[in-house]
Write a protein that binds this DNA or RNA. Structure first.
Length: 306
DNA sequence: AGCTCTTCCTGAAAGC
DNA sequence: TGCTTTCAGGAAGAGC
């Protein structure tokens, strides 16, 4: 599931092949995840890709008029959110079209930018270039850029659970379920603790943990749990470094306690009950803490064929 | 302000 | 073996 490290990896890959190319044509399959497909079909062809950037979990492909083109509609941004299963890849147009591929951008170098999304939880839209600043204002702070004081103020003032805060894209943008759990484990903070009740050093530990987890995951090119692939179609490997996420029932790598799973903020949440003591939490229900009776199969590699 | 629940969607795993 | 049910999750909206 693409979170900040996965999106950053995709963006870095797209940056190698897209800037300088012109989009000649756009074709759509299913469009229920596209804000206005007709508008994209009208605006985008003939525009040249100037840069590719990331804002939280959003990919922004910046487009400008190509001097050789008739398209005089001015600069635009193509905004893509990968949702749960979105993939943006640059391929040879002759390459087999994988199932659930719904958008095709023909490029002037003969290749094709394809968007594939099995569950269609992603989103695609265009904005006039001038609208990007307002779009970014809707998002929270970038977790890799936020300073200590700002973090303490933004997080420490909130009367809500840490897990819910980390997932709230209007507070910090880019953190999702995997990296929220992994960050809280490294900061030794229970997911259901109330942010407002944390001491300054705990807030700083959380900021540091979020940074470290995200930076490390970027180095591993993201976590591939099910569908995530980078712009070249390759998997990341950070899932092998997870210390709590989807490890419920297994021993904590630090203290050997059994990793537990509970629902916080409507999300499956994994934590070590010893390393992350409950402290002062809100509405913590023991009934919601569960442990799998059988270890889950985490990926195809763990299936042993005999 | 913040919480829970629901909806969208598909495929894999679990359950029977 | 094969069919049915459950679950995973990002984001948005409803309702409390």
């Amino acid at each position: 599931m693409p979170e900040l490290p996965e999106v950053e990896t995709v963006v870095r890959g797209l940056r190698v092949s897209l800037p300088g190319r012109t989009i000649d044509e756009v074709r759509f399959g299913k469009t229920d995840f596209v804000d206005d497909p007709l508008l994209i079909s009208e605006r985008v062809p003939g525009l040249k890709i100037s840069s590719v950037t990331r804002h939280g979990k959003f990919i922004c492909i910046q487009l400008e008029p190509d001097s050789a083109s008739q398209n005089m509609s001015g600069g635009h941004c193509l905004i893509v959110h990968l949702g749960m299963t979105g993939q943006l890849t640059v391929t040879d147009p002759g390459a087999p079209v994988k199932p659930h591929t719904h958008v095709f951008f023909a490029l002037n170098d003969g290749r094709e930018l394809r968007y594939r999304d099995v569950r269609r939880f992603g989103r695609m839209l265009t904005l006039p270039a001038a609208g990007l600043a307002d779009f970014k204002k809707l998002l929270g702070k970038e977790p890799l850029e936020i300073g200590e004081e700002e973090f303490c103020q933004v997080i420490g003032s909130r009367r809500t659970r840490l897990k819910a805060l980390l997932l709230d894209q209007t507070v910090l943008c880019g953190v999702g379920n995997i990296y929220a759990d992994e960050s809280l484990f490294r900061a030794r903070l229970h997911p259901a603790r109330t942010a407002e009740k944390l001491k300054r050093e705990q807030l700083l530990a959380l900021r540091q943990a979020v940074r470290e987890v995200l930076e490390e995951a970027i180095r591993f090119r993201g976590s591939s749990i099910s569908d995530y692939r980078d712009s070249e179609g390759k998997s990341g490997t950070f899932q092998l470094q997870h210390r709590v996420y989807q490890r419920d029932g297994e021993p904590c790598l630090h203290c050997k306690s059994v990793i537990r799973r509970m629902i916080v903020a409507g999300r499956s949440t994994h934590f070590c009950p010893t390393c992350q003591p409950a402290g002062r939490t809100r509405n913590i229900s023991k009934k919601k803490t569960t442990q799998r009776t059988r270890p889950r199969v985490r990926n195809s590699k763990s299936k042993k064929s005999k």
